[in-house]
Design a protein around this nucleic acid. Structure first.
Lengths: 275, 275
DNA sequence: GGAGCGCTGTATCGTATGTTACGTATTTTG
DNA sequence: CAAAATACGTAACATACGATACAGCGCTCC
């Protein structure tokens, strides 16, 4: 049964030609406000011509554009009157693929942050914002992208940020550059990688401050870490989820940026001008 | 300070003549839907003539009726996009989470999935699981780690998964390997990168199926994309958040894994034995 | 490689919509 | 109570909007 226009679109998206599909996608992306504007505005937003928009609504079964708009308005009105039923997607009909996954992920995040004090986050942010030392980031097989993500952002607002990539021998050689004032951010969830543990140990011996992102069972690296962030990773999937750790990373990026605002702003402006 | 039109009306209701007051009252009663309809319908509902409606909106300070309608639409859009602020007095449910960053991120995810049908996810997963073609992944400056993350997982469960890294010229040369049966997954949020757009266009010309992860304003690549996933990225930070897209990526990874379970399991066992 | 089909954009058209002018009704004030 | 001012509706107007006809183009299938 199809109750909302959004469902109707999703249902027929596959059978639509390219232009109309673009119309459909821009409508979904800004649902439903774009559909309440004029055909001209809608077509401009979608990057197609007006007739394509009209053909699109015709394909959905409407006689004309005003009728389509009325239908959208009715839907909106119904939503506004009963906030409980303001679901665009039916609330997980019969074990949908997405919903349990999403629910678990949201729970993971709430749980992760519940065990994470503001104080701890602030401490780590302060450490990362301390410009007297360098910042190194590294991750495991599946978590290295998180290290890259964080490095890409931090590198914009401060100098001396390095992501350690490539062969194990490559980063081992970088140990020589690391000292007491430096920070090493490690992402390691199970199955924990021996190479990372060895690396962390050597860095620790050199006095490097280690910030560890791991799962709730704690990587052995936690022994050497100054700060440990334990994220929930369990989801109904064959894989573990790194989403909670990802959000912690983004939160830290935001916090560091705020602390470096003064210098950071100047630096970012300089960067812009270099383009 | 007056932020909504409803407040504006309440403010000036006393100074209005009878006819316009009736207009104001019917608008408040069916706020804001009546205001989105035509002048004729509005006037009929209020039991007054069309010019009265126009004088009413003029008194509110609008130059003409369309301007008034746009203002109402903007207000509605703002409400719809931030479910947290939907309730007039958000009492921060669930024991006041300290981090507004987290709250915004959770909202973004809910909102993103609300605009994402199970059908669409299933379609994309099926496409990614189709082993007749190759899968390429690439991302922008800050989103490339997401491409890597997805590639790292997909590569485990099926062959012919390639992450496109390095110089622009590198991936451009890989175009020669791409054809109709292949899929190109692109991550591109603003500020959209020209190099990616060019690349997407060329790939599209070769008949490659493009799956685009972007923000709600849609990268220009949406023009060429077969599937578009529009994630919410707004957070109280200097940066945009890719967390919602990350979760969608994980969801897709899970779905593809499930579809390839039979072959995938065998493959994973083979891999394990290779260690 | 050629013929047919389907999709898309340009240009044109008709019309519904917002707008304005004007006359009448109603209220207000001296 | 009279006269003026304000408010309101009717009707004509102009514009902007949606709709349609048509031609160019790319694609698929012989």
């Amino acid at each position: 049964m199809i109750s909302s226009i959004a469902e109707l679109i999703a249902d027929r998206l596959g059978t639509m030609p390219a232009g109309e599909r673009r119309a459909a996608q821009t409508l979904i992306a800004n649902y439903p406000m774009i559909g309440l504007k004029t055909v001209a505005e809608f077509s401009a937003a979608a990057g197609v011509s007006s007739p394509t928009i009209l053909r699109f609504v015709a394909r959905l079964g409407f006689q004309n554009y005003p009728e389509f708009q009325s239908s959208l308005q009715d839907e909106l009105a119904a939503q506004l009157q009963s906030p409980a039923t303001r679901t665009l997607n039916p609330p997980s009909p019969g074990g949908g693929t997405a919903s349990p996954m999403l629910e678990a992920t949201l729970d993971n995040m709430r749980e992760t942050f519940r065990h994470l004090s503001d104080r701890q986050l602030a401490d780590i942010a302060a450490r990362l914002a301390d410009r007297r030392g360098k910042t190194f980031l590294i991750g495991g097989r599946f978590t290295d992208p998180l290290a890259r993500y964080m490095a890409a952002h931090l590198a914009v607002i401060q100098p001396d940020v390095f992501h350690l990539a490539g062969q194990e021998s490559m980063w081992r050689d970088r140990l020589i550059d690391m000292g007491k004032r430096d920070v090493l951010v490690i992402f390691d969830i199970r199955r924990y990688q021996d190479s990372l543990v060895r690396f962390a140990e050597k860095a620790h011996q050199r006095g490097v401050q280690i910030v560890l992102f791991t799962d709730q069972w704690l990587s052995p690296i936690a022994r050497f870490a100054r700060h440990v962030i334990a994220g929930r990773t369990a989801v109904p999937s064959a894989w573990d989820s790194s989403a909670a750790l990802f959000v912690v990373a983004e939160t830290l990026i935001g916090a560091v940026t705020r602390q470096l605002e003064a210098e950071g702003a100047k630096r970012i402006r300089e960067m812009e001008s270099l383009r």
